[in-house]
């Protein structure tokens, strides 16, 4: 049973807490709904990109190993030494439902010469196609990186929100309700006891 003083002050305090808790609960529920909606968008994109990249990257890697077989590891390394230093992506932070998530965008027009920066005399054409495939793949890889991180962060946040909603719904709010009920019953009881006492006294006084 609740261990509170059955006083009027406790009663008003708890009533206030209850209204705050109910409002908070409603807000958190709304947050949960909106987050689920956003999450679905991102997780769909995540899945789609993952499937795409798994097949494309496999193909590009296959081409690369063909090139390596044709050219030998050393000359491949040599060609890679002056690799196309493509412009780094722009890393920013954006806010989704007050979760700070990464946003990675690629600068436009960064590849010179189609991204091939080595001499063509001693390199295999397999290398060219591998590098070109990779350059095409990079924006997707960056997007997948950010989308997957967003999904992970949103999933964590959603789990936290769910816990909060459940704590409010099944523990905090019922607890406050019982406290309020308990106090108001006690107060009514006292009120009645008081009335009875007064009546008794009045009876005694009139019989005297």
């Amino acid at each position: 049973m609740p261990t509170v003083n059955p006083t009027r002050m406790e009663l008003t305090k708890n009533k206030k807490r209850l209204t705050t808790a109910t409002r908070g609960h409603k807000l958190l529920k709304d947050k949960q709904d909106e987050m689920a909606r956003q999450f679905m968008i991102y997780i769909r994109r995540d899945r789609q990109l993952r499937v795409e990249i798994e097949s494309l990257l496999g193909k590009a890697m296959g081409k690369m190993s063909l090139a390596e077989a044709e050219m030998g590891r050393t000359s491949l390394e040599e060609a890679m030494m002056i690799s196309a230093a493509s412009a780094p992506p722009v890393c920013a932070i954006k806010n989704i439902m007050s979760v700070r998530v990464p946003e990675i965008t690629r600068r436009e027009g960064d590849s010179v010469n189609g991204g091939l920066s080595y001499g063509f005399a001693f390199s295999s054409d397999k290398l060219d196609s591998a590098v070109l495939a990779m350059n095409e793949l990079m924006p997707k890889l960056y997007e997948l990186a950010s989308v997957e991180k967003i999904c992970a962060m949103l999933a964590d946040e959603m789990e936290r929100t769910r816990r909060r909603v459940n704590a409010l719904e099944y523990i905090m709010i019922p607890e406050m309700r019982t406290i309020i009920k308990y106090i108001s019953m006690k107060l009514e009881d006292n009120e009645r006891a008081n009335t009875i006492r007064l009546m008794k006294i009045k009876d005694q006084m009139s019989s005297d």
Partner: peptide
């Protein structure tokens, strides 16, 4: 990872 090197 050699492929990533190719992408700079």
């Amino acid at each position: 990872v050699v492929l990533f090197r190719a992408a700079g």
